[in-house]
Amino acid sequence: MTEACHSQWQYNFAFLDENTKRMLRRALLKAVAIPGYQVPFGSREMPLPYGWGTGGIQLTASIIGQDDVLKVIDQGADDTTNAVNIRRFFARVTGVATTSSTAAASLIQSRHRIPETPLRSGQIMVFQVPEPEALRTLEASEVETRKLHAHQEYGLMHVKLYEDIARFGHIATSYDYPVMVNQRYLSSPSPIPKFDNPKLHMSPALLLFGAGREKRLYAIPPHTRVESLAFDDHPFSVQRWEQACALCGSHDSYLDEIITDDAGARMFVCSDTDYCQQQQEGKA
């Protein structure tokens, strides 16, 4: 069966050639050894434009194996165009099984969310990162931000949070909320909502981050301390909703507001579609 598939493939298993995968894996090993540190890598042309998750796709391609079960989400959903395309791509170039179930997946590629279903040991999450440098909006020079990391000079990050409070009365940063990984490297958790930040802390799963345009990857290995920056008198807090999910009744999940008719009626539902489904089935 595998043999037959092989002969039909136009590309090497998982699209990338073995040398490129090895190069990526070496970079990943370094990233795992230095949690939160951005490792440069030689990004390859992928059959998708930047902004479509080429960084994440390359990481997934470098680590995916025949026995993996792949889940791909965009926002929290498995059925958005971007998620569907990436999942189809890997199904075609690897032949591995795909799933929408968080529990059933061994490898999860995501852009905006960490699933509500707690991750477990042995699972790997790959994040598609548009901007790996948490300090970038404050310091345009890459040479300078590298120095700031090298010398652990992170006062600048608090400048941004200070400015948030001065302008809005609270820390208005609600996604891509900066974290300190392993008490050493300031990192951008990619555009996940800050709601998901606590899931980064001591996660039993391996978390990998890939930025294609910027050619950087970084990692949060299992059971690593991840602290969301804050002030003593403005502590870190996550989004909360008054209402429960209109579909499954969950009080604990991240909700999206959706407009349900032309008159502008709204309801709040789980952004994590798999989780919502599980909750609904669990009740039935």
């Binding site: 400048v159 001065a166 002030f231």
Partner: peptide
């Protein structure tokens, strides 16, 4: 960034965390 942030930066770099 604001004047306040400019003046506070060095204090924050030295670890002050009370807004």
């Amino acid at each position: 960034v604001s004047a306040g942030a400019n003046v506070s930066e060095r204090l924050m770099a030295l670890g002050q965390r009370h807004y």
